[in-house]
Amino acid sequence: MKIALVGIGKIAVDQHVPSIAASDDWVIAATVSRAGTVDGVPAFADLDTMLAENPDVEVVSLCLPPVPRFEYAAACLRAGRHVMLEKPPGATLAEVYALEAIAKKAGVTLFATWHSRMAKGVQAAKAALADKTVATGHVDWKENVRQWHPNQDWVFEPGGMGVLDPGINALSIMTEVLPSAVHLKSAVLQTPENRQTPIRAEMEFTNNVTASFDWLQEGSQTWEQKFTTTDGTIVHLSEGGNRCVVDGHEQEVNELGEYPALYARMAELVKNGQSDVDLSPMVHVSDIMTLAQRQIAPAFDW
């Protein structure tokens, strides 16, 4: 199938382009970006022009930041194109619900992707917890914003979510593997005095599940989740969900990486005429923003 990429920035170049190139399901037929391009692929600066000149492009993958994404997604859906949304799927829950309604009316696929759910060890953890009751759990998601989002000021603007942008990856895994849903009880957000979004977060959920997010971690990056069940089983996900250890025993994991798995899933959805729009990680972020105590942190500069 022919696919167009919209927003040729770091995530598109690092993840989307090589994943599509390695797949037998896809060929990149066009790009839309103010500056970025992909070698050998027709480049457009305007979405409407790309859609008009490429009626055979069936699918559009949107790699834009969340705030401007709605109008692009709505235009693609109304033009009868299947749409794949980079995480988070939108700036607000309401706009993603609106996109879901537009997709349904147009009879096309909408896929709200959560790439961390496709990490190699996630399904092994889900299987290990499936028939159990979680007694305690803790999530540590700590990384260096200067490494992963260098000079990208949008992450600290309204809608950019700050540390909850990587944190939503952790929440996407947590909502996938836990055998029963949890909800937020309390949170504390630390926001630099010169920025709009948080750089650290501490959260307490029901069922004795807690989480710590930090965007100033230097050295080794920490992406771990550990759950202990009432029967004493310990499930430990590390390396961003790519490694799963249950009671000290390494588990077999999936072969496909995160983004190749996303594109395989998108191909499956399109072929079967289905959509996949699970907003549970985004609901947690909305709850955190609603309930959290606010603390002012030192100014952040690149």
Results as ranks from 00 to 15, higher is better:
Glu95Lys: 07
Ala98Tyr: 15
Leu62Phe: 00
Gln295Ile: 01
Val67Cys: 02
His236Thr: 11
Pro166Ile: 03
Val235Trp: 00
Asn207Trp: 13
Ala170Trp: 07
His284Cys: 01
Thr206Leu: 02
Val83Lys: 02
Asn208Asp: 15
Glu204Thr: 13
Thr37Tyr: 03
Val57Pro: 05
Ala101Asp: 10
Ser180Thr: 15
Gly7Gln: 01
Val270Leu: 08
Asp56Lys: 13
Asp276Leu: 09
Val108Phe: 03
Thr228Glu: 10
Thr175Cys: 14
Ser23Ile: 10
Thr191Pro: 00
Gln123Tyr: 06
Asn194Pro: 09
Pro66Ser: 08
Glu100Leu: 01
Glu100Asp: 11
Leu237Asn: 06
Val177Cys: 12
Arg146Ala: 14
Ser116Ile: 03
Val245Leu: 01
Val13Gly: 04
Thr222Phe: 09
Asp24Tyr: 10
Ala29Cys: 05
Ile3Tyr: 02
Gln190Cys: 05
Trp141Phe: 03
Gln15Val: 10
Val17Asn: 09
Tyr263Met: 00
Ala125Gln: 14
Glu86Ser: 15
Gly273Asp: 01
Ala267Pro: 02
Glu71Asp: 05
Val27Gly: 05
Ala119Thr: 06
Lys132Asp: 11
Val96Asn: 07
Val134His: 08
Leu77Asp: 11
Met118Ser: 12
Ala267Val: 00
Asn194Met: 10
Ala45Glu: 11
Ala29Tyr: 10
Thr230Cys: 10
Ala103Gly: 12
Pro18Ile: 02
Asp247Met: 12
Ala211Thr: 05
Asp24Thr: 13
Asp131Met: 14
